[in-house]
Design a protein around this nucleic acid. Structure first.
Length: 276
DNA sequence: CTGTAATCCTGCGAGC
DNA sequence: TGCTCGCAGGATTACA
């Protein structure tokens, strides 16, 4: 699924296609969406004009000239795109709006791990997001991250996947950042030096920046807001490359399970350190 | 506070 | 070819 770079690409793609457009009829698919926190579709956005499309962590927030906020999460396989209304609706379409220019805003999600909710106003949406998300990775103070690392015995991989520590990092970019920082995914936070914590924070920001420049990574389902796939998957140094030689030292890359997720790393470049 | 597992779903590739 | 199995960009909940 889409992590921060993919979601950022979606909102950048959607802005020119959506801002200024008037939403028409809204329709929902037969399956509904998974785990909606709010189902206020009784107050539809029909007739509202889109004013902004923003990202917070892996969440997308669509604002209009009305108070309500549409908050979308792509889950593992979600796609939020603008398509010509003449293009036949694909399978697994769950929510779509007519636009006033002959296009449609479509939310498609085969696995239905995503969500789309309508919050009553900006404050409610913000409260919802802030309750579960830490700082954005590009806006994460060094001392804050050092402290978060130092105070826990959790493995670094689990820390990076915790959205309340830093928002937007998922399984791919956690592995890629740990490799770039030379840290083993099982290394415990309290065993990490401040310099290593800084290196990890910088590696996270760096890999996310590169991935955004490549429009994210497409492994299977991901597409941007205009339907284009990402390109960063060819730049992976460890993710999905078990058994292949490390680009830095040629040691065979390995895969283990950490925090319930597949974790890819180089046993030579990423020394085990203190596993607690 | 931790960690682990299960859960929600569909689809695909590997292996037999 | 057809089947089963394991695995997948995530987040939440229950439980040890």
């Amino acid at each position: 699924m889409p992590e921060l770079p993919e979601v950022e690409t979606v909102v950048r793609d959607l802005r020119p296609l959506l801002i200024g457009r008037r939403l028409g009829r809204v329709r929902t698919g037969p399956h509904g969406l998974r785990r909606p926190w709010l189902k206020a579709w009784t107050k539809p956005l029909t007739g509202a004009v889109v004013e902004a499309v923003n990202r917070r962590g892996k969440w997308i927030v669509v604002s209009t000239d009305r108070p309500e906020r549409l908050v979308v999460h792509l889950g593992m396989t979600g796609q939020l795109t603008v398509a010509d209304a003449g293009v036949p609706a694909p399978d697994h379409l769950h929510l779509w709006f007519d636009l006033d220019d002959g296009h449609e805003l479509r939310f498609r999600d085969p696995r239905r791990f995503g969500s789309a909710d309508l919050f009553p106003d900006a404050a409610a949406a913000e409260a919802f997001l802030d309750a579960r998300l830490g700082p954005e990775p590009f806006d994460l103070p060094a001392d804050v991250f050092r402290a978060a690392v130092a105070r826990t015995t959790r493995p670094l991989k689990a820390l990076l996947l915790d959205q309340s520590v830093v928002a937007g990092v998922g399984n791919i970019y956690a592995d890629e950042a740990l490799h770039r920082a030379g840290l083993h995914p099982e290394t415990r936070g309290h065993a990490v030096t401040p310099a290593q914590a800084d290196a990890l924070r910088e590696a996270v920001a760096a890999v996310l920046t590169l991935a955004i420049e490549c429009r994210g990574s497409t492994i299977r389902d991901y597409v941007g807001g205009s339907g284009l796939k990402g390109g960063f998957q060819t730049e992976f140094r460890v993710y999905g490359r078990t058994g292949e030689p490390c680009g830095g030292c040629a040691t065979a890359l390995e895969r283990i399970r950490v925090a319930g997720r597949s974790s890819h790393y180089c046993p030579a470049c990423q020394p085990v350190g203190d596993r607690g």
